[in-house]
Design a protein around this nucleic acid. Structure first.
Lengths: 223, 223
DNA sequence: GCCGTCAAATATACACTGTATACATAATGC
DNA sequence: GCATTATGTATACAGTGTATATTTGACGGC
């Protein structure tokens, strides 16, 4: 038994297990709670053991991010490009809601891993396949991703359930002087009175982009 | 002289000076270099002195962010709403290029200061004034801001000057296997060959949004 | 001019961070 | 079975935010 318990203590660690435990910790406790010592404790090991499998914390974060990217739905090259882009966008938003620490890091990290390259390749491929040029496919991907990241980060910033909006608005209303902020006051009041449910729509902005792209593509401005 | 130098050491600090020094430090050295001790040194004072004027580091960051927001061009309620939105968007991007640490914090911070409220109020006001409802104005602002934040953060993530794109692409090309990433490889090659300058366009995505909004507004879908 | 009061600057300390370095130990190749 | 190598550990260091206690200097009333 001493032998097995000792054996258990050896060769149990690897980069994948570390990455998974780190993601779980960041998901449940927040990214600021992810320290090498806490992660090591979670893994039943000392902090320095981790460094036998990952170069440093930045390296670990890259592994975590690449895993998140692997959860994006990979575009099919053939098929309805608008629907493909929509499915990818929705899967990205869902992944970000599961891993709220990811978007700021992902968008601010230069060194991207293999999954990121696969995602970019498939996304560009889908667009190029329907007539976009390298340049316009890049512009389109850039605009779509801007919306996905920007929208989701705003959404994560204000984590209020649809049925709580009214209460949240009522809470903030007294701080918003009508004379100073007439429109903001009116908007908040509309929320309190139930004239507007406060739910912004991910698809609203996404559709504006996709419809605009489709129109420009059809009129030959993008090919 | 001892009196004046001593007097200089007293009553010289206030929240505004601290905020300005902190912004300067973050702009020049990066947000990760902004520590209370370094900031104190910059101000010729000890770290704990700062706490006589700001509650804690989070409070300081809020002050810094509100200053950044004050650099946004405040929408006029009357006037061409598309042009107003465009001017605001451009001024925001410029502010973010000056203060690259700001976007992730600004988009992830719940407690927003007075300047943020002024910006939101004026933006909603401009839209409501031309026929948007509280709901559709909120959707529009949300979509536009998503693009501004998302685009700028992507841009900051890849800080390559236009004339360096070719060299950067040539550097990355060997890492991108043609068989694994055909489209990414092709796009990078197009950059190396000068067929595409690599400059994505802030206005490309912004125009898609504004034109789509204008069309929907005109057809009565937003009022 | 002096002196008590009070605000502002400081000194010290604590718990926590990432990680360099040196070492111990268990698994593997010959 | 033994040397090598891989993996986990112990210790230490510089740096972080900030709580607490203390000193210091400016100002109002006499």
């Amino acid at each position: 038994m001493s032998r097995t318990s000792q054996a258990d203590k050896r060769r149990t660690l690897n980069a994948q297990k570390i990455t998974e435990a780190a993601i779980e910790l960041a998901d449940s406790q927040g990214i600021e709670a992810l320290s090498m010592r806490k992660l090591a404790t979670q893994l039943g090991v000392t902090a320095m053991s981790i460094y036998n499998h990952v170069a440093n914390k930045d390296d670990l974060l890259s592994l975590m991010l690449d895993h998140v990217v692997s959860e994006f739905e990979r575009p099919q090259i053939k098929g309805d490009w608008q629907e493909t882009m929509r499915r990818r966008a929705h899967s990205m938003r869902q992944a970000f809601l599961r891993h709220p620490w990811a978007p700021p890091l992902l968008i601010s990290t230069i060194t991207n891993g293999e999954q990121t390259m696969r995602d970019t390749d498939a996304t560009l491929g889908c667009l190029i396949n329907v007539g976009f040029t390298y340049a316009t496919a890049d512009w389109a991907r850039n605009a779509i991703d801007s919306h996905i990241y920007g929208y989701t980060m705003q959404e994560l910033n204000f984590p209020v359930e649809p049925d709580e909006y009214k209460a949240a608005a009522a809470h903030y209303l007294p701080m918003i002087e009508k004379s100073d902020f007439p429109y903001l006051h009116g908007a908040t009041l509309a929320l309190v009175n139930g004239e507007y449910d406060g739910v912004t729509q991910f698809d609203f902005g996404l559709n504006l982009l996709l419809e605009g792209l489709a129109r420009q593509l059809q009129s030959g401005q993008l090919s």
